[in-house]
Amino acid sequence: MAFIEATDLIKTYHPKGAPVVRALDGLSLEVPRGTVLGLLGPNGAGKTTTAKVLTTLITPDSGSAAIGGIDVLREPDRIRRMIGASGQYAAVDENLTGFENLDMIGRLYHLGAKRSRARATELIDLFDLTEAGNRPVKGFSGGMRRRIDLAGALVIDPPVLFLDEPTTGLDPRSRLGLWDVITGLVNEGTTVLLTTQYLEEADRLADDIVVIDEGRVIARGTADELKSQVGGQRIVISLVSADDRERATRILSRVGTTATDVSADGRTLSTTVADGPAALQQVLADIRAEGIALHDAGMQRPTLDDVFLTITGRTTSHDDAKEAAA
């Protein structure tokens, strides 16, 4: 039996004067003990709703969920004593210092004053938050807040951790720092449900990935499995002159496993390849032999967009388009 189990979750919202929103439409997932599941999907796919059901924040219309064999819907209080939640929706109090936030959380877990204070001090050291320890959170950067927030989720050193888009909106340096922290936790055996919009993040942190869209699971597997489903890497070249595009397309089609994409201006060409480095070398050699001038050439790792495009035939931005049309 998996440690975290969600079965057939359905959650609908009925906004006034708008069509019914099916935030979760029969979603099921499993997370084996000690593993990390990456819940991947675009905005509005149902990632946060799933995390909220599992962290006892919202009740689904139907379906069931259990953590460690404990029913999330029937015994929310027992669940709350064993989980830590961090991310977009579980914030810290801006007017309290980092220490006060962590101390308060400890006391609300009923650890008592002494143990709460000791744990807060420990987490401040562990997360390199000394600077934030004695000043109100208000004045700190996004990266620092996320670290305090994450520390807040770890006050009881919980066996289960929910991380909802832990690095969304962070600069690359803060993101790398936070990834290191999360990797450390994962190595200690914490079971993690991670929601993210970034394939790279799921690739880096998760053992298994579940791709969701419109409240349903549309693909699952390891990062490698998903990427091979997408077709590995892409080779992208930019031509100096669009006149060369036919010759360049022929060159790319020799290595490509899919049809070559040509941009509207006819100067950017791309195709999916099985073995990136070998294919790139061959393409560059052929381009040189034909005497075609290039601005740029390189390999692109598949993104969430590529996974999406392959599975659903549309890009992740469809939600925005729909909203704009409405």
Binding site: G69, I70, M82, Y109, R115, I156, P159
Partner: peptide, 21 residues
Amino acid sequence: MTTTTSATGTARSPDLRPAPA
């Protein structure tokens, strides 16, 4: 079942175990 819940329903460090009720 009982063993599963008692092993997993609490924090891993006995020092950080929330009050049971």
